[in-house]
């Protein structure tokens, strides 16, 4: 090549459509939302108020109460998902990856079905099944002699949030199952054989050999669950409505932001406070992702082959 390489236009052409749409519709609005949280609406228009909205959200008794209610509900929602969805998903994956298991493909496809259904379907299906009017849940409990255990779980303040979280577990269990299944399949056969030569089989093999090797994948499903849960909205909206009843007991950050942004019943919508809540959610997710990337993932690396 005698001359210097000219500007390679084709690189720009290949990148341009994706970068333009992504920047315009995703990145700019994300930062514009952070920016909106610094303004407040007045009769004459909007004015810059700095961190005043955040002070209202955390300082004003009325706002703070709603925020912390939604926040702790969200934490509980996440904990239930972590504590039930991921262990059960891992257990199912471990069973499915057993050598020479018959019908494995059939089980795998069937267990993944709830994950492809929309929230509208999932929310209403469970609402109907748990409904005290229809009586599928009570009559099934009656069949095994436990009729007295039935309660309108979605309608009681004490049980509604946990019930919704378990419905979410039911819906998304396919994701940890699949990712862990893939990780288990990728463990080299020699490692397993070496373990067997040493007499490590069955459950001990799972705990001592396979589990440490799939820890990176468990890290990934944990962070996926975290981001998904702190951004959740649809299931609660469908099953419990925008008011996240009964008496806000199922209110999480997503529904709280929706109500604040759009208003409900007597309260008017407030885009700036909505943006403030979205910003808080942004920072919560950012902190979680950073903790994972810099704290957990680095430490897990050394287990990979």
């Amino acid at each position: 090549m005698s001359e210097r390489t000219p500007f390679r236009w084709h690189i720009a052409v290949f990148l341009a459509p994706a970068v333009v749409i992504y920047t315009l519709v995703m990145i700019i609005p994300l930062f514009a939302t952070l920016d909106l949280s610094l303004y407040s609406a007045t009769e004459t228009g909007t004015k810059f108020v700095g961190l005043e909205n955040f002070r209202t959200l955390f300082g004003d008794a009325h706002w703070a109460e709603q925020f912390w209610n939604a926040f702790w509900n969200n934490v509980w929602f996440f904990l239930i998902n972590m504590a039930v969805q991921n262990p059960v998903g891992i257990a199912l994956a471990a069973l499915l990856s057993l050598p020479r298991l018959r019908f494995a493909a059939l089980y795998r496809s069937a267990i993944f079905v709830p994950t492809i259904l929309s929230f509208v379907i999932v929310g209403f299906v469970w609402k109907l099944i748990l409904s005290p009017i229809w009586g599928i849940a009570p009559s099934m409990l009656a069949a095994i002699g436990l009729r007295h255990l039935f309660e309108p779980w979605l309608g009681q303040e004490t049980t509604a949030l946990t019930t919704v979280a378990l419905i979410s577990v039911w819906q998304f269990i396919g994701i940890p199952m699949m990712l862990i299944y893939a990780a288990l399949l990728s463990i080299p056969e020699e490692v397993i054989e070496a373990a067997e030569v040493d007499g490590i089989t069955g459950m001990a093999q799972f705990w001592k050999i396979k589990l440490p090797l799939i820890l990176p994948s468990i890290g990934i499903i944990s962070i996926l669950t975290f981001v998904g849960n702190f951004n959740a909205f649809d299931l609660i909206y469908v099953a419990q409505g925008a008011l996240a009843g009964p008496d806000f007991s199922t209110d999480i950050l997503g529904t709280f932001m929706y109500r604040t942004f759009f208003g409900f019943q007597l309260q008017l919508g407030d885009p700036n406070m909505g943006a403030t809540i979205a910003s808080v959610m942004f920072f919560i997710i950012l902190i979680g992702v950073c903790l994972y990337l810099f704290g957990i993932q680095r430490r897990l690396r050394r287990y990979q082959f």
Binding site: Y22, M26, P29, L30, T33, D35, A275
Partner: peptide, 29 residues
Amino acid sequence: FRGNFLMGLYLAIGIMIPIRLGTVAILKL
């Protein structure tokens, strides 16, 4: 090309940060 790695990183932000958080500004846009 120069900026290849940074461009990859920039485009990967969207995998972790949900677009939903920009809703207020998306609606305005």
